[in-house]
Design a protein around this nucleic acid. Structure first.
Lengths: 120, 120
DNA sequence: ACAAGTACTTACCCTAAAGTATGTATTATG
DNA sequence: CATAATACATACTTTAGGGTAAGTACTTGT
């Protein structure tokens, strides 16, 4: 284990937070604006790179691929590339990623209810 | 369907995304690293400002209060201040905030399972 | 008189994330 | 020979969020 630098108080505290609060762990994995949105689109069906792009017009290609790589690294999604030209790459949820179904579902339900004004 | 303008900006595209993807709506409300963590701590019990602070040592006061204000503005939490000295301020989930229980719960469950290595 | 306690506020700085724009590989097709 | 199609890569700039540190208000306790 690498020694923690004196100056990294916040990192130390984050470690403590991780042990104390499960949600912190989730945030380390999908705690960004785009990741849950990407996961949502993959939760409805496996998709090619270009399909995700079309599904989320507001995201730039740089950011999209960046997040896809991170999600893959974190074991939440699986990338499958067919060695053809033009390239054919499909992304899908891994077992772990599928474990997030309840989270995504709950989000979607809340959003629909909130937009209907149910909580007013 | 509205035609997409060539010049369409990211804000416009975000608007479209909002209509197409419920999760986008959720992200507009709680799409940051800290907000779900704050909501988690409020979901276990109403808390004073200082209690939240202690529960999340990694967050700075500036950022904490910033997010609390935003969450209040967005109608997810309720701030109640007793006019005493020293101040006594309590934060709690609103009806809308409580509607996020399933999301928070699902996150916590996933985190626990993921940390146990269930998804490997 | 001074510190302690609570819940902030404010000014300044810094970095990580995001945006812009352009380039790359490969091959079938006109 | 040029173009189209797909899935990226990369260099550069900008911005928003977050971090640091210090200050404020008001009263009780020593």
């Amino acid at each position: 284990m690498t020694a923690v630098k004196k100056t990294s108080t916040i990192q130390e505290n984050k470690q403590i937070a991780l042990e104390m609060c499960p949600v912190t762990y989730v945030m380390e994995k999908i705690g960004s604006y785009w990741k849950p949105i990407i996961l949502y689109h993959l939760s409805t069906s496996d998709k090619r790179y270009s399909e995700i792009k079309r599904a989320i017009p507001a995201i730039t290609e740089k950011v999209l691929i960046q997040h896809l790589k991170q999600l893959e690294t974190d074991g939440l999604i699986i990338r499958e590339a067919k060695p053809v030209v033009p390239p054919h790459v499909t992304y899908s949820l891994s077992t772990s990623g599928k474990g997030l179904f309840p989270v995504i579902d709950a989000m979607a339900k809340w959003a629909i209810e909130a937009q209907k004004g149910i909580f007013v």
